[in-house]
């Protein structure tokens, strides 16, 4: 089965419908599927629910889908870098479900692993626990969190082979593997598609079984906060 597509738009063809639930990889602007987000903007698909740790920044990453009002609801842990997000949220145009970062990652991993729910001590005694089942194990309270299964996953990797085996680079791995796992269909954009057999099978970060479509392209890879130190004098 052919997994490699020519453009991000082609890679999403036939997969999109209004009101769908999308899981997106990335942390801040690091390791985000830029080209697939652009293709979502172009498609005009709307009323989206998106599970993603952040929602980009104003005018970049998932922030582009806020500008076009294509997102109805976000599941995120941190949205502090985005003024338009805050405006839409406070005015009631956008729904927001805060998830602790580790809970969001585990909900994706669990959903992709056939685990419909799990107990965690994260959030016990806070607003996150409201309305959730509490169970005591060995003297400690835990809350029940549900696994996430998304209609579509969009992720970014460094390299892929044509069977969808993925390799990520440094901290750009972040939410991409769990986001990929939890989608009924997963589309990955990569910097390079390499010939089958050229990736070391022992060094594959995400096996191709989780990846249904692949597109290669050039990302901007914008840096959110450049921090440096002075070079020592020679």
């Amino acid at each position: 089965m052919k997994k490699v597509y020519g453009t991000a738009g082609e890679a999403l063809e036939g997969l999109l419908q209004d009101g769908m639930f999308i899981a997106a990889g990335g942390f801040g602007l690091c390791g985000i599927p830029e080209l697939l987000i652009d293709a979502l903007v172009e498609s005009g698909v709307k009323d989206l629910t998106i599970a993603s740790n952040n929602c980009g920044v104003d005018g970049f990453g998932l922030g582009k889908l806020l500008d076009t009002r294509q997102i109805r609801k976000m599941l995120s842990s941190y949205v502090g870098e985005n003024a338009e997000f805050m405006r839409q949220y406070l005015s009631g145009e956008l729904e927001l479900e805060f998830n602790p970062q580790g809970t969001l990652a585990e909900r994706m991993r669990a959903g992709g692993s056939g685990i419909p729910g799990f107990y965690t001590k994260t959030g016990v005694g806070t607003v996150i626990a409201e309305g959730k089942e509490v169970k005591n194990f060995d003297g400690q309270d835990y809350i029940l969190e549900r696994g996430i299964v998304a209609d579509l996953s969009i992720v970014k990797a460094w390299k892929a082979d044509d069977t969808g085996n993925l390799v990520f680079r440094k901290t750009a791995r972040n939410f991409n593997p769990p986001a990929a796992m939890c989608g009924r269909v997963c589309v990955a954009e990569v910097e390079e598609i390499v010939p089958r057999g050229s990736l070391d099978p022992d060094m594959i970060h995400l096996p191709g079984i989780y990846v249904h479509r692949i597109v290669q392209g050039v990302q901007e890879k914008r840096i959110e906060k450049v921090t440096t130190r002075p070079r020592e004098e020679a």
Binding site: F27, L29, C30, G31, T171, I223, E224, K225, V226, R229
Partner: peptide, 17 residues
């Protein structure tokens, strides 16, 4: 990193290079 050595794929939880 030293100026010029920033890597967009390498950030901390505060999103700093």
């Amino acid at each position: 990193p030293y100026e010029g050595d920033e890597d967009p794929d390498l950030i901390n939880a505060g999103k700093q290079t």
